[in-house]
Design a binder for these strands. Structure first.
Lengths: 353, 353
DNA sequence: GTGAAAGCGCTAACAC
DNA sequence: GTGTTAGCGCTTTCAC
């Protein structure tokens, strides 16, 4: 509102952004006071009137603190990193959403990158250069040396959904429990020959899901010798090849627990091709519940995993506690019953439609 | 390696990161020389030996330039922002992938946020505080005041996949052309009663797809009075309600062009429920080709859109040219023929299977 | 109740 | 060929 040089002011606004000094000048206080007002320093004793002057000046000049200057001063970027394998895999969309939510709650930003598009060294660089205050790893596609370089930066490192060698803090879901729920559901429907299309050999989650499957059989009173484990992976193609293997079996299972939804999609296609009906000839259930499951024909029964919560817990671990070790998120896995699982007896009938 | 206080050194390494001064000292040059080596300043004349000393020192100290200091000095963050509606919508995964690729090519980072989890004011803040050098908008869920505040920062602003009022630079795909391809495909299969399940009234892309549909009918020699436009949207639910509307029509169309794949999923479910077979009773084609389309039963015919390229073009526009106006990405839309479209005559036969 | 002053780590114009 | 210098905009301890 200074009547002098309104035009010059205009021009200045366009080119040069207001700094804390400009605000201080307009409010007739020292920059340090402005800073303490902005950061709501409790130890600052200030007259209500002065504070108002400062706040008004901030508004009038549309002042926004320079992030770089602040970051340089405080050695904090207010940003967390998240590394995923690939944006087009819907599983990760859930993890990102949870992580973004948790970051927002902490007034922080989330910088998500995919291993496909951005080289791992860039993430080391991000940590070392102070662009991010910590990194969440949701991929296992990492060289041990890269992990080591990341750890050496001294910044928090948390792995999500899998253990990674060299990463001390891990957030997991109850993978074993998920398999148990799936097996139990099929058992309750009367199935006794229940196979498992497992995830990749290299995968930590796949191992736990397999272990859960075996234990669940036993706890259902099915002898462990009855376990049928088919080789698989977390891709559509591995679902196709897993089913090919299944179809060669002499005594064909009546039900199948699939370690991952992408593989389940492939399995369903392959079964359809082979003329094996779901669920009349074989019941199918997969781990991970995403929107896609409901849109398949038949709609796929699944066990939901708390992916969003895992993302959020990951950011919480980055920003908060100093603890090490593994945390299993509390929100339980849940059975989502759709059309791909049916009672065993329905097999005898059903020439229907 | 100083024999004194080795523990202290350790501690120092852990807490204090090497700076450019440390590198300079070790290499026995001035910090400015180190800086110019790092940034490969052409005007720097330096002996090969000196350069080697600098490079060795950098490696030995594992020096990484402090991003905040650099950014403060240069007023450049080396980061672009991308705002999308929601990570769980697979359309955006493609746009993100393209944008990330283009950012990586420019040695920049991409900070993606969703409108669902992060308030729009945060993006204004990101621009104004210099956290990002420019912002890509892939959502239309924005208040005019927010756009205005963004524009006022003077930083580049580009909209992708839709025009946004107040945003001068726009990257689009050929939406009209996509509809034309879809209509033409159905026409070639013998269809003459071709309906359009349109996108939301408010959407810019939906309007262009509708316009393309109308023009294509005309160019196929179908009178414009034969156009059947059903209300719709870009959600699964709107596909369901659109089909409900379609089923009330006296002369039912034999083919349907759906403006968006999410709506197509809903439409397929609704048709299945109603006992209308695809493609025997009605052919379906949707705009946007994503992996999901191939996994539906029947596999959905689509027109692919160059989403990845749009994301990449958006980042290019942010970082490069100063031009204004609209760019339509070159990569053409393409027909992806699957099982949901069939010749009209197949309707008469087909009690098969 | 408010101000002064130092310095975070880097770059770029200029000096020699 | 290499060094000097002056900040970029902010926070924070200490002074009065």
């Amino acid at each position: 509102m200074s009547p002098a040089r309104p035009r010059a002011r205009q021009g200045e606004d366009a080119t040069r952004r207001a700094t804390i000094a400009d605000v201080a000048q307009l409010a007739r206080v020292d920059p340090s006071v402005v800073s303490r007002v902005i950061n709501s320093d409790d130890r600052l004793v200030i007259k209500a009137e002065t504070r108002t002057r400062v706040l008004d000046a901030i508004r009038e000049l549309r002042y926004h603190p320079n992030a770089a200057a602040r970051s340089l001063r405080t050695s904090q970027s207010g940003t967390f990193g998240l590394l995923i394998p690939d944006f087009t895999n819907p599983i990760y969309a859930e993890i990102i959403t949870g992580a973004e939510r948790a970051a927002t709650e902490r007034d922080a930003l989330l910088l998500v990158g995919s291993a496909i598009e951005t080289r791992p060294e860039r993430y080391v660089e991000m940590l070392a250069s102070g662009r991010v205050d910590g990194l969440l790893l949701a991929t296992d596609m990492m060289q041990p040396e890269t992990i080591e370089a990341m750890a050496r930066t001294g910044r928090p490192l948390v792995s999500v959904n899998q253990r990674i060698k060299g990463v001390k803090r891990t957030i997991l879901a109850d993978d074993e429990g998920a398999s148990r729920i799936a097996v139990r559901h099929l058992f309750d429907l009367g199935h006794r020959r229940i196979a498992h299309l497992r995830g990749p050999e290299s995968s930590d989650t796949a191992r736990r899901r397999l272990a859960g499957y075996r234990k669940a059989l036993v706890s259902c009173g099915i002898p462990e010798s009855e376990a049928v484990v088919l080789p698989g992976g977390y891709t559509t193609d591995s679902g196709v090849s897993g089913v090919a293997e299944l179809l060669t079996l002499a005594r064909r299972p009546t039900a199948l627990v699939i370690a991952n939804i992408a593989a389940a999609v492939g399995a369903m296609s392959a079964l359809r091709e082979a003329g094996v009906r779901v669920p009349e000839d074989i019941s199918l259930i997969a781990i991970h519940d995403i929107a896609l499951a409901a849109h398949l024909a038949p709609a796929l029964s699944t066990v939901s995993m708390p992916l969003t919560e895992m993302g959020a817990a990951g950011v919480a671990a980055l920003s908060g506690d100093e603890s090490e070790g593994t945390t299993v998120v509390k929100k339980p896995t849940e059975l989502i019953e759709r059309r791909s699982t049916a009672p065993l007896r329905s097999r005898a009938h059903s020439r229907s439609r």
